[in-house]
């Protein structure tokens, strides 16, 4: 366990051609009346074309702030300070002017929001939601934009798209609305789609349809997806790589299969154990992680998970562990890193 801290970034960056998204030592500090909160604390990764990164963590771990900081929706201002670099399709998001940023949002990057009930304007027709940006960005006229909007609705699997264009959001079901939100994000064929808990507000069968839809669209359009979720089950099988976040930091990242197979960080292990399973005998107490995420105004010194960790040792509270590559039998496992002094499932160490 003695290797460079930027190992993660180097390895995954080398994997494919020009990456769609490069995040380098990103830090977002939110100023609150109670003190400064380090919501995102030194995160680095890259994402190539057609790749999916799953970002997992419990509420308050900084996932959504990470997503919005990458979008450039959160920038340095009176309420927060952002440092580090984000490159989307080669453009430094936090160095762009306001109008260049709007250009980027309409084009290179799209975002899908958590709650389709509030992500659509209740007094605007579905068609208007879609055609507005098409007419503005692409200079389409009204019938062209309408035709394209109908195409987009068909693309996201909405039946009778022509008729839906003239309906209001409240006339659609939750799943349909989320499809509309996805269609909006796809309107200008973005290279990167940030999906911030896209299925949390939906019931399970619809969740699956939406995730299948995202996977199909990724195949067809070749975009990179950053899939943010608090649910490991949502990310499993959908993401190529998974990053587990805790208290603003990535505590473990690996190829999805490797992570689910042999998690090294106790937090990942605990999250996996907390997934309820159908084959469990009935009336068994569900596994949970004791305690709550730390107060981020004054996070614990050392490993931030230590106070809740069942394997914690005295050295865990002295200095924060760095994100180092995993070793198996003395050989570095490619793509797998974790930040822990006392990892689980670490056979050869």
């Amino acid at each position: 366990m003695s290797s460079s801290s930027a190992a993660l970034q180097e390895r995954s960056g080398a994997a494919r051609e020009t990456p769609v998204l490069v995040v380098d030592d990103l830090r977002t500090q939110i100023h609150t009346p109670h003190g400064d909160v380090q919501a995102v604390d030194g995160i680095s990764f890259t994402l190539g074309r057609g790749e999916t990164l799953g970002v997992v963590g419990e509420s308050g771990s900084g996932k959504s702030v990470l997503g919005r900081t990458i979008m450039g929706l959160y920038t340095t201002g009176p309420t927060m300070t952002v440092t580090g670099r984000v490159l989307i399709a080669g453009k430094d998001v936090h160095a762009l002017s306001a109008s260049e940023l709007r250009e980027l949002w309409g084009g290179d990057v799209g975002m899908v929001f958590q709650d389709p009930m509030t992500a659509l304007n209740p007094v605007k027709k579905v068609g208007v939601h879609l055609t507005e940006s098409l007419r503005k960005r692409r200079g389409m006229n009204r019938p062209q934009a309408k035709a394209r909007a109908a195409e987009l609705l068909a693309l996201v699997g909405i039946p009778e798209p022509r008729r839906r264009l003239d309906q209001y959001p409240h006339e659609l079901s939750g799943g349909m609305r989320q499809r509309v939100v996805i269609a909006m994000a796809l309107a200008n064929e973005p290279a990167l789609l940030i999906a911030d808990e896209p299925t949390t507000a939906l019931d399970v069968t619809v969740q699956r349809q939406i995730l299948d839809l995202l996977a199909r669209l990724q195949d067809e359009l070749g975009m990179a997806i950053m899939l943010i979720s608090h649910n490991l089950g949502v990310v499993a099988g959908r993401a190529d790589r998974v990053a587990v976040m805790y208290a603003g930091r990535v505590v473990e990242t690996a190829d999805a299969a490797a992570l689910f197979d042999a998690p090294h960080h106790p937090y990942t292990e605990a999250l996996l154990e907390a997934i309820p399973r159908l084959h469990q005998p009935p009336h068994v107490r569900l596994a949970a992680i004791d305690g709550a995420p730390p107060n981020m105004v004054a996070p614990p010194v050392g490993c931030r998970f230590a106070p809740r960790c069942r394997y914690a040792q005295p050295d865990c509270t002295e200095a924060p562990p760095s994100l180092d590559p995993a070793m198996a039998n003395g050989v570095v496992t490619p793509g797998h890193s974790f930040a822990c002094y006392h990892p689980v499932n670490a056979g050869g160490q």
Binding site: E103, Q114, T118, K136
Partner: peptide, 14 residues
Amino acid sequence: QREFVLAARAMGAS
């Protein structure tokens, strides 16, 4: 504070 305002921003609305 509703998400549709954020969504509009994220689509590049002025």
